Amino acid sequence: VDYIVEYDYDAQHDDELTIRKGDIIKNVKKLEEEGWLEGELNGKRGMFPDNFVKEIK
């Protein structure tokens, strides 16, 4: 499942992704941690907030 970024987010920890509006995040999975998703961007896998992105259908 792929998501498109709607709002910029700067990573706060090493396991998070810095994302920018218009980025496409690939292979996204829901995490047990409420409010977070995990996906791949530019060869890096990491977490990001689910309210900054929208699923591409």
Rank of each mutant, 00 (worst) to 15 (best):
R20K: 08
Y3E: 01
L17M: 08
K21Q: 10
G46D: 00
E34H: 11
D15S: 13
D23T: 06
D50E: 14
D10A: 14
K30G: 09
I24D: 01
E34I: 10
F52D: 03
G22K: 04
D10R: 14
K29P: 01
I56F: 03
L37Y: 06
G46E: 00
Y9L: 04
K54R: 14
E33V: 13
N27H: 13
V28Q: 01
R45F: 08
K21L: 06
H13D: 10
D8F: 04
E38M: 08
K29W: 15
E55W: 01
K44E: 07
H13Q: 11
N42W: 14
D10I: 14
I25L: 12
R20S: 05
I56Q: 06
L41I: 08
I56L: 08
L31V: 13
E6H: 12
W36V: 05
I56D: 06
E6T: 14
L37T: 05
V28T: 06
E32L: 13
I4Y: 09
R20V: 09
K44D: 04
D8M: 05
L17I: 07
K54L: 10
L37P: 02
Q12K: 11
G22D: 05
L31W: 08
D23K: 03
I56H: 07
I56K: 05
D8G: 07
K26Y: 15
Q12G: 08
M47K: 08
M47V: 08
D14S: 14
F52Y: 09
D23L: 07
H13S: 13
I24H: 04
I56S: 04
D15F: 13
E40G: 05
I24Q: 04
K21M: 11
K26S: 10
K29N: 08
L41P: 00
K44Q: 14
L17E: 00
L37F: 10
Q12A: 10
G39K: 00
G43I: 02
E55R: 10
K26P: 01
Q12T: 08
G35A: 04
F48I: 15
R45A: 04
D50I: 13
T18K: 05
L41R: 04
K26E: 06
K29Y: 15
V53K: 02
D50K: 15
A11L: 04
E33R: 14
E33I: 14
E32T: 13
R45S: 07
I56P: 03
E6W: 09
F52N: 03
K21V: 12
G35P: 05
L17H: 05
Y7S: 11
V5L: 01
N42H: 11
I19G: 03
V5N: 01
K26V: 12
G39R: 00
N51L: 06
N42D: 13
D50W: 15
V28L: 03
N42P: 02
E16H: 10
G35S: 06
A11Q: 13
L17V: 03
L31S: 09
W36K: 06
G35N: 07
L37R: 04
K44F: 12
G22T: 04
F52S: 05
K44P: 01
R20M: 05
G22I: 01
D50N: 12
L41N: 05
D8P: 11
I56E: 04
F48Q: 00
P49D: 03
R20D: 01
D8N: 13
N42L: 10
R45V: 09
K21E: 06
Y7E: 14
K54N: 08
L17T: 01
W36Q: 03
Y9P: 00
H13M: 10
K44T: 12
E32F: 13
V5I: 03
D2S: 14
E6G: 04
W36Y: 09
E40H: 07
K57Q: 15
E34A: 13
D15V: 10
D23Y: 06
N42A: 12
K44R: 14
E16Y: 09
F48P: 01
L41E: 01
V5D: 00
D8T: 10
H13E: 09
D15T: 13
I25N: 00
Q12R: 10
V1S: 14
Y7N: 11
M47N: 07
E38D: 12
V5M: 02
D50Q: 14
A11P: 11
R45L: 06
E55I: 11
E38K: 08
L17A: 01
N27A: 10
G46A: 06
K57N: 15
D10N: 13
G43K: 08
L17W: 01
E32R: 09
D2G: 09
E6L: 15
V53Y: 03
N51E: 13
K30I: 10
M47W: 07
D8W: 04
L41S: 06
V28N: 02
K30Y: 09
W36H: 03
G39P: 00
L17Q: 01
E32D: 12
N51F: 04
D15A: 13
H13A: 10
T18W: 02
V53M: 03
T18G: 03
R45M: 04
N27F: 15
E16K: 04
R45E: 03
N27Y: 15
F48H: 00
K30T: 06
M47S: 08
N51S: 10
K26F: 15
Q12N: 08
K21W: 11
G39S: 01
L37K: 04
I4N: 04
E34G: 09
K30Q: 09
E40N: 09
R20F: 04
I19M: 15
E32I: 10
Y9R: 15
T18Q: 08
E16G: 07
K30N: 08
Q12F: 07
L37H: 04
G35E: 05
I25M: 03
I4D: 03
N51T: 14
I19F: 15
T18P: 03
E33T: 08
D8I: 02
E6V: 15
E38V: 08
V53W: 04
E55S: 03
D10P: 07
V28Y: 02
G39M: 00
